[in-house]
Every structure is written in C-alpha cells, then in structure tokens.
C-alpha cells in the first residue's frame, strides 16, 4: 500500500514540476492523435453523410463494413501496417516505419470507421422533412446535404469525440508501427506499457493520471453535447 502511495506522490510531483520528458510525451500523444483525428474527420464525415443520404448499390455492405471496422483490433491494424511499411513490404520505399507518420496512419485507420459509421447514424436520424423543406426553399442538392449535416451536428460531434477517445487510449497499433523510440515515437500509452514492464511506476502513473484526466474531459464534453442534443430533440415532441 505504501509503495502505491509513494508512486502516486512521485507521479503528482512529476506533473506539478512539469517534467520535461513527461511534457514531451504528452505533446507527441496529442499531436499524433490530433492529426489522426483531423484526417479521419475530414474523410469520415463526408463518407458517413454520403452513405446516409444517397442510395447506391452495395450501400448495405458498406454500412455493415464500417460498423464492423469500428471494433477493429488495434494490433491487427498494427500488424497490417507493419507488413505494408516494412522494408520488404509494398510501401517499404517510403521509409515510414517507426516514425510518427506511421503512428498517425494507424490511428487514422482506427478512427475513420468510428467517425464515418456514427456520422451515418446521425445523418439518417435527421427527419426526412428537413431535406424536403430545404429543397422547397430552393436549395441545390449540395446545399441540402450541407443542411442535413448541420442538423446532425450533435451526433457528428459525438462521433468525433468517440473517435478521439479511441485513439488516445490506443496502444497496440502504435507500439508496433512506432516502435516506442524515446523522444521520437514514445507516446503516453506506449510509455505506460514500457515503464510498467520495467517496474518504473512513477512515470507510468503520472501518465496514467494525465490520460485519465484527458479521458474525463472528453467524456464530460460528450455528456454536455449529448445533453444539449437530447434537450433540443425533446423540443421536437
């Protein structure tokens, strides 16, 4: 018990003293996850909206695939990317293995299905009369699509936050393709795994606390958005 308490105290000290190594790891984590989330959002929202609004052959299959990929095992993504990016792999010439770029690609692959599938769900929940009303007021097809996306905004923001939660907590894929290189590809989750293995609990615990705080903030933000969305949905009744 004393040992736990001691580790916890030292972890708090590291946070309060703004330990240089700790800050560097936190910054890289936020950078990798932030960029991955941005790319996944830029691609995932239009894809989700398109699948939600347009009828085309194979639509059902695409929706099922996106829903399935929401639960992609990170280690499988890591393994797949490793094989693609390793020297003998088809993309080996890019020399991306063990770089932050490889980690961003891995996290984008994990975040994209979440953003796209949940955006699809949010868009199909928008009442069809909104689409019709938009057309009666002279909107083009593109303007109607933008209007529906705007109406689905709370669902889409929840989708993006859910994807952020997933990438921030992810360890398997980035450990495989990033290699956990100190000062270069070492992020919060990979450091926690490594430091725990070494029995160096102070840094692991400090990062664990930061990760939990970030997760708490994400969930609180999500709760506020959902609360606002529910409140507005009730006004429809």
């Amino acid at each position: 018990m004393n040992f736990l308490l001691e580790s916890f105290k030292q972890a708090i000290n590291l946070i309060l003293n703004l330990d240089r190594e700790l800050l560097q790891i936190i910054f890289l984590s936020l950078k990798v996850s932030g960029i991955a989330l941005l790319i996944a959002t830029v691609i995932g929202v239009p894809v989700g909206a398109f699948v939600g609004l347009k009828k085309f052959i194979g639509r059902g299959l695409l929706i099922t695939t996106l829903n399935t990929f929401m639960g992609l095992p990170p280690v499988v993504v890591g393994l797949f990317l490793y094989l693609m990016l390793s020297r003998s792999g088809p993309l080996g010439f890019l020399s991306l293995l063990y770089t932050p770029t490889a980690m961003i690609i891995a996290q984008t692959i994990l975040a994209f299905p979440i953003v796209a599938a949940l955006t699809h769900s949010a868009v199909v929940r928008v009442t069809p009369v909104i689409k019709l009303a938009s057309r009666t007021l002279g909107a083009t097809s593109f303007q109607t699509t933008l209007t529906v996306i705007k109406e689905a905004r709370y669902g889409i923001i929840s989708a993006v936050i859910a994807a952020l939660g997933r990438v921030m907590a992810e360890v398997g894929a980035i450990l495989i393709v990033g290699g956990n290189i100190a000062g270069y590809t070492r992020v919060m989750t990979t450091t926690i795994a490594m430091e725990t293995d070494k029995g160096n609990f102070e840094l692991a615990m400090a990062l664990g606390i930061v990760l939990l705080l970030i997760s708490l903030m994400i969930n609180f933000f999500m709760f506020l958005i959902q609360k606002k969305g529910v409140k507005e949905a009730q006004q429809w009744e």
Binding site: V129, I130, L132, S134, T136, L137, T140, T147, E151
Partner: peptide
C-alpha cells in the same frame, strides 16, 4: 410550405434567412 414545416434547429431569424442565404 409543407404540412410539417421542417423547422431547422436554429433561431427563427436563421430559419427565415435560409432561402436568401443559399
């Protein structure tokens, strides 16, 4: 004007401004 108006989730002003904006 539809029987169900199809109200956008925003202010009355922005709802009325919609057609002009587009």
């Amino acid at each position: 004007l539809l029987p169900e108006v199809g109200v956008f989730n925003t202010t009355v002003f922005k709802n009325v401004a919609y057609g002009l904006k587009i």
